[in-house]
Amino acid sequence: MRRVRDAEAPGSTAGAALDAPLSGEPLIVVRDLWHTYLLGTPLESVALRGATFELAAGEVAAIIGHTGSGKSTLVQHLNGLYRPQRGTVRVLGRDLGDAATDLRAVRREVGLVVQFPEHQLFEPTVGDDIAFGPRKQGHDRPEVRRRVQTGMAMVGLGFEEFKDRYTFGLSGGEMRRVAIAGVLAMEPRVLVLDEPTAGLDPRGRTELLDTLLRLRAEHGIAIVFVSHDMEEVAELADRVWVIAGAMTALSGTVREVFRRADELRGLGLGVPQVTRLMYALRAAGLDVPTDVVTVDEAEVALARVLGDRAGRGDAGDGERRGLAYDAGSGSHIKPRGHFGPNDLAGSVG
């Protein structure tokens, strides 16, 4: 995947035009958040006990964690679907714990794409469904139309081609993009996605991830996404928040978090496959860095190490390129296989 992130100029276009909060204050701050479902009944269950989260302007944050760790509960606080029972949630300078805060205003600026968002579609045609949000905001016809066009363009759906298509005749990936366009048509400053790639085929997944990168690069939209897929996290995120046992267990940049592979494993989580590969190579006696999180980085690191060897006549040119190619082609379309030390022995040694 292209790394659009590097080309991005922070604080461009959309962010500057709107009434930005005091510079320096993050867009979203969550401190010591607690949440109990079915509070006050015999069936109550604690979903969050002291979660922390932060999102800076223009940032992409990933929330990872085991099933049932409270990730979804956390993201549902970010756009005011829940008010904090305990702790603070500040979104764009507004305190959600304050009963006077208008939650609808918060929801306009923080777009939440729920899990399997294609299940929320209800209008017969694509255009009408995407127009739901803008119409609810009370915009006039030309403005609704403009927003539908923008939303569709953002997710790569042609306006003329798709606006009159029958919603329920679309493919799963297309339906999901329509649902996301419906949220984007509200022109949010922050986009929150709960497991956006779950259940998509490899192609739909790659397209969606590209879309997210483009949203941030071209429109300056800050993104929060929940994921189980460590490759996705490494590819997309600037910062990672690890939720375990209903609270924030770890946080930091992608590299900082994935460097703590043992702790992550202890929490039932993993690291990207290339990172595992680097650990395995190191265990096999090859002097490679282990804080490698993407395939591109791995390619550079391996080329360097193998280049050293080639200089000494240990490995041929063709072999080196072959290994780099294998790792590279595996980036998105690969089956979830495992690289074990044994697989590597043949190609490296």
């Binding site: 549902q76 756009n79 679907l81 609808r104 929801r107 306009r108 777009g111 939440l112 794409v113 729920v114 899990q115 968002p117 299940h119 929320q120 739901f132 949000g133 803008p134 609810k136 905001q137 419906g182 949220v183 509200m186």
Partner: peptide
Amino acid sequence: ERIIKAQASRGAD
């Protein structure tokens, strides 16, 4: 509940 949350996120009141 899921659907209501989704539509509320899209501005339904």
